[in-house]
Every structure is written in C-alpha cells, then in structure tokens.
Design a protein around this nucleic acid. Structure first.
Ligand SMILES: [Mn+2]
Ligand SMILES: [Mn+2]
Ligand SMILES: [Zn+2]
Ligand SMILES: [Zn+2]
Lengths: 137, 137
DNA sequence: ATAATCTTTGCAACCCAGTTGCATGAACTT
DNA sequence: AAGTTCATGCAACTGGGTTGCAAAGATTAT
C-alpha cells in the first residue's frame, strides 16, 4: 500500500521521494536482509550512489538497521516499529551458509556479556552461521 | 626465541620460511589482533600478496584465527595452543571504538543460542564494541 | 510569479581490502 | 644434474563502499 509506505517515511521524518518509496517497497517485501549490490539488482536501472544514500538516510532515521554478517557486504533490514536502535533492541542475526540469506532473529536478544574490568560496552554484533529452515528441508 | 617460532610452525605443519618466521614473530609480539594492511606497515618493504598468502596458510593450519570486527579489514590473532578452531574454541572479541584495537577475550566463550526450529548452527561471530581498558584510563 | 535557497539525484571518479595470474626463484626428489 | 614442487614478488584486477560535482527538483522568501 502506497499509503503505508508514505506514512512510514513520514513517521521517521524522511521526505517521501519517488526513489525512497521504491526502496522502502523493496525492503518491505523482503523477508531477509538485503545488501546494496542486491538492492541495485532489484531495479532495471538505478544509480548505486543514490541507493547508497537512500539506505544511509533510512539508517540514520532508524527506519532500517545494518548487519555485518561477514560476507563482505553490509545488509539492511527494516526495524520493528518499536525499535529505537538502542542496545535493548539488539537482536541476533543468522546467516545461512547455503543460500547466503541473512535473517533478523528479532525474538532472540543478544545475551549479556561480563567484560573484563575497565572494559565498557557500547554495542554487540552477534551473527550465527548455519543452515536456515528453508535450506534444511 | 627463534627456536619457539620454528617449533610452532613445525607443530602446525608449516614450512618455516624466512617470511613466515618474520610474520609469526610480529604476531607473537602483538597483544591485539592485526589486519593485513597493518601487517604490511610493520615491514619496511614486503609484498602484500605474500603476506596475504602467509596469513591464509597460517589460518588454514590453525595457527591463527580471523576476526571480522566490522571495521572493514579482517584481523588475525594467534590461536591458543589448545585451540582447534572448533565451535568449543569460539570466544568473544572486543573492538575498542577509541583505539580501534581488537582483543581476543579468550576466557569468554560465546553464549549458547536457541535457534528457531529447523535452523542449525555451525559457528558464531560475536564482537562487542566499547572502550578498552587502555583507553578508559 | 520570480528569484534565491536547499535537497535530492545521476554520473563519474576514486578508495581500499582482498584476491588472482604469472613468471621468477628456492627448495626438495629422482 | 635435471625435474618437480612450493614460495615469493610484481602487477593487475575485483567489488563494495564512498565522494565531488553539476543538473534537476522542491521549498521558501521577495
Ligand atoms: Mn535485524
Ligand atoms: Mn580471538
Ligand atoms: Zn538458507
Ligand atoms: Zn582502546
């Protein structure tokens, strides 16, 4: 729904340009995280830099979050409505070594870690690798 | 000790060439993980490709392990003697956002995760970001 | 409405870590 | 000594990410 798209953009204070609407549409359809190169391929003809800056804008305004799954390209996924990208919102990600898809395990929050003394914690990146439910059939 | 260097290489079935001795020396002196570009800088004049292949050999033979801390360059650190790079040997890594150093927290093993059904686990990458003990003084 | 200003877009160029091909050189085998 | 295997050095390339800059579009002030 175009309405939903625009209101989501508005809710995060992002001006709803044509490009941004299209990108958000792709992200919404997506059930797994997507990288910039993958996003490029979803369009017949689109400029990498524009898509790049669109993703950066989305990320800055907390519409999406980025995931470094170690594959060499950063992936992006929609934040939950409730998400503020605070430490509390951190969840585990899963990379399937078979299909290369990256899943947000939104229900699995990153476990607490007791750091050595005088180490302070800012954020945690936790990526589990294995075989996803689709590929394990 | 040159003796130690060679015996370590031998123990992992790596032929002790001059280059490999030098690289292992650097790695041994190092208290934090080091990247390929950083390793390059430790030498007056050394070929990137050779260093690259040296690291790959070391990693394949489980003398070192690699760490993707999200900074854009893979870092490498010596394995503990006991390490076989099995899931059991997995430990947490710490990236200081101030000095950009990456630490092996060898004593902190990666916590267990209960994956959704029909997801299977192969390995886990867990990187904690924050301020290290040196920088928090 | 027009002009001035700010934002977004498209294109090209660049950066940099990582990687590969290939030829030379060193070290073992026969 | 000749042949084979392995290691090294150099150069070239890849691919994701990033930036400069000018044109186009949208917003605001006059
Ligand atoms: Mn996620
Ligand atoms: Mn480590
Ligand atoms: Zn899969
Ligand atoms: Zn530090």
């Amino acid at each position: 729904m175009q309405k939903d798209i625009d209101s989501k953009l508005n809710a995060k204070n992002i001006k709803p340009t044509a490009m941004r609407q299209l990108v958000l549409q792709v992200l919404t359809k997506q059930s797994t995280a997507i990288s910039l190169p993958e996003l490029e391929n979803k369009f017949e003809k689109a400029d990498k830099a524009t898509l790049y800056r669109t993703l950066k804008t989305f990320e800055k305004n907390k519409l999406i979050h980025s995931i470094d799954d170690g594959t060499g390209s950063i992936k992006y996924a929609l934040c939950k409505d409730s998400c503020e990208c605070h430490p509390d919102d951190l969840h585990v990600h899963f990379l399937c070594t078979h299909c290369n898809q990256t899943y947000c395990l939104n229900d699995i929050s990153v476990p607490n870690i007791n750091l050595p003394s005088s180490f302070s914690l800012e954020s945690v990146n936790m990526v589990v690798k294995g075989i996803c439910s689709v590929c394990s059939k």
